[in-house]
Computed example of a mutant assay.
Amino acid sequence: MAFDIQKIMESIPHRYPFLLVDKVVDVVPGESATGIKNVTINEPFFPGHFPQKPVMPGVLILEAMAQTAGVLAIDFLGEEARGKVVYFMGIDGAKFRKPVGPGDRLEMKVVKTRGGGAVWKFDAQAFVDGELVTEAKLTAMLGAS
């Protein structure tokens, strides 16, 4: 199962320039998914982070992982989630191992460790070319929009 950009935008309210997931693949409903972000030099954060050596901000990598998790949760809950938003509640154990820059294909793998109702927890990892670049434990809550 996979979600294109249209299905992602039906699931979460984020839009350019803050929609940080281009596609979601390898979806196991309610359990796991992989988000894809094609990082380009045209990203609005690169001119200031950093002009001589563009690096995707770590907080945006975490946000991309959280958006992937949100798509997974909203899809699984279906009608129960109509009109609701997934809010980021917490980040634990975040580690940034390598910088991400223009031309990279960021793959964010999220695995549910708890959830199914209002509060969800995920183990999240981000990879570039199969190499781990970021990892964290994420907590999110489903709430009214």
Rank of each mutant, 00 (worst) to 15 (best):
V100C: 10
L20W: 03
V86S: 09
F127L: 14
A136M: 08
M9C: 01
G130K: 11
I41M: 10
W120D: 06
V27H: 02
G115P: 05
P102I: 01
T139D: 12
K23Y: 11
G93E: 09
V133Q: 02
D129Y: 10
L138V: 15
V39E: 01
F18L: 14
Q52R: 07
E63M: 05
M141Q: 12
H49N: 14
G70T: 01
V24K: 03
I8F: 00
H14N: 03
V24D: 07
V25G: 13
P29C: 09
W120T: 06
G30M: 04
R114I: 12
G35V: 03
V39W: 03
K53C: 00
P44Q: 15
Q67K: 05
A126Y: 02
P57T: 15
P17H: 07
P102F: 03
F45C: 12
N42W: 03
I41L: 11
K23Q: 13
H14W: 01
V71R: 02
E43F: 06
G70V: 06
R105V: 15
E63T: 05
V55H: 04
L132E: 10
S145T: 04
L60W: 04
F122K: 01
D123L: 12
A66F: 03
D123I: 12
V86D: 06
L132P: 12
G101I: 07
L138W: 09
S145I: 00
G48S: 14
A126M: 03
L72P: 06
V55K: 05
Q52N: 08
K137D: 15
D104V: 09
I5F: 02
V27D: 06
K98E: 09
I61L: 09
